[in-house]
Computed example of a mutant assay.
Amino acid sequence: MQIVECPRDAMQSWHSFIPTEKKVEYINQLLKVGFHTIDFGSFVSPKAIPQMKDTKEVLSQLDLSETSSKLLAIVANVRGANDAAEHEEIDYLGFPLSLSETFQLRNTNKTIQQAKDSLKEIQDICKKTDKTLVTYLSMGFGNPYNDPYNADYLLQFTEELNEIEVEIISLADTVGSAKPEDIDFAFKNTINTFPDITFGAHFHSTPEKAPEKLKAAYEAGCHRFDTAMKGFGGCPMAKDDLTGNIATEILMKFLDKNDVDIEIDKTHFQASEALASKVFI
């Protein structure tokens, strides 16, 4: 079970700028919990995502001396990937690719084909700098913008990523519209067809619908989940009404209920919860 805690996603659309020192304090606390990965920041244009303009400064102040967690940074283009790859501390580069032409243009100002071309270059950068590329497939469970979506289309995308040796693909429910049957459909088609790829779930959801989404993904074979403390977050490029990330607390309750063993420090987890309430105010 891989739990990816996402303070970057929680922070990026927050209504006021979170001071660098608060970001550092919070992420350093999260590093003590035992999460598999911390999605800590992004190397993107500060004009597009002003909340992440201090990612390099935050990174320079993180205490990685005793953590088992790995660091992931989001990049939106080749320039951002080159910038992120300069930092030894970063293990993963995450790139947002969309199954929806409408959302790809909105999110990165690129067509799907342009984004795929960038992805190939970013994979080359990752291989040269000993990073691992994580590709997020937004609108991974269906398309609210009325663009094409079906099993063949999803598998075609995945096959192209497999051909350039992408090892981790996270299917993203970017606007929180996925239903359990959509989730079951997507994961069973991809996991069974591409056993060498690790598939993850990046859900946005209202709290009441989160457990059924987690259940559908887990029972379909997904064992990698992106969550955020208290359910903060949402993609600022998706639409005006943001739907937050699934709360990490809800995932923990789900895993405990299903007797899934995870190595989490509960004391530091509770301290992180308490600190989140002071960061996101």
Rank of each mutant, 00 (worst) to 15 (best):
S118V: 02
C235L: 01
I168M: 11
D240V: 08
S13T: 14
D265F: 02
G221E: 07
I125W: 08
M1S: 10
N77I: 03
K266E: 13
D63L: 06
Q104G: 05
Q123I: 12
T227Q: 07
D265P: 02
M229D: 01
I112G: 01
L155M: 12
E88T: 11
E89L: 03
I197P: 13
D261H: 10
V260I: 14
F103K: 10
L255V: 04
E25D: 15
G234E: 02
S60F: 10
L155V: 10
K110N: 05
V134A: 09
A84W: 05
T267W: 03
D152T: 15
L99M: 15
H204F: 05
C235D: 00
T158I: 15
L64C: 02
V166M: 09
I281H: 09
Q51P: 03
H15F: 08
I281R: 13
S277I: 05
K53Y: 09
V4R: 05
C222H: 04
N150Q: 12
I125E: 01
Y149F: 15
T132F: 09
P236H: 05
F254T: 00
I183F: 02
M139K: 08
N150I: 14
I125N: 09
E160H: 01
P50C: 01
S272L: 00
A186W: 15
K116M: 14
I197S: 09
L275K: 06
F203T: 03
E181Q: 15
H87W: 14
R8T: 09
S98W: 02
D130I: 15
D117V: 13
P180S: 09
E163T: 10
Q156I: 13
L255P: 03
D39P: 03
E89V: 09
S100N: 06
E86R: 06
I18Y: 02
C222G: 06
S205I: 03
K116T: 12
A81F: 02
K127G: 08
K266T: 12
L155K: 14
T20F: 02
N192S: 14
S65A: 13
L119E: 01
A172H: 01
L161K: 05
D241H: 13
I38R: 14
K56H: 04
I262L: 04
I74L: 15
Y218H: 12
E101S: 14
E121F: 11
A186F: 04
E86F: 02
D54E: 10
N28T: 05
S272V: 01
D226S: 03
E159C: 10
R224C: 12
A220K: 06
